[in-house]
């Protein structure tokens, strides 16, 4: 399939990227090539084949229902942010 400029802008939106014009062009070319490559799966017959999403041999791994202490404290976690105020993470306006 052909990847158009609108597709790249849509994918950038889904990915939360503020791409420059140059990036839109470059990624457009790259993604076109990559999608062309991965589209060869069309040739593989997967009729009546169930999908595999994970290859871990266990299901429903249980543990005791008890409170487990966190390794990091609230203060340590808050210290990781760029800006904090009144024990909360500060960000620019939301709306």
């Amino acid at each position: 399939m052909e990847i158009k400029r609108e597709d790249i802008i849509h994918l950038a939106e889904l990915s939360n990227f503020s791409l420059s014009e140059k990036e839109i062009e470059g990624l457009g070319k790259d993604l076109q090539e990559i999608i062309k490559y991965i589209s060869q799966l069309d040739q593989l017959d997967t009729n009546n084949i169930e999908p595999t999403y994970q290859v871990f041999d266990l299901e429903n791994v249980w543990r005791e229902d008890e409170i487990v202490e966190q390794e990091a404290t609230r203060e340590e976690l808050l210290a990781l942010t760029v800006e904090q105020k009144d024990h909360q993470i500060k960000v620019p306006k939301v709306l």
């Binding site: 994918l11 889904l14 990915s15 990227f17 791409l19 990036e23 990624l27 990559i34 991965i38």
Partner: peptide, 22 residues
Amino acid sequence: YENTRNEGFMPENKRRIMIGNF
């Protein structure tokens, strides 16, 4: 979000994230 991610990720990170979302 958009500026941090755009400035913070390398081109290959962006390709993979966008292919994934595609």
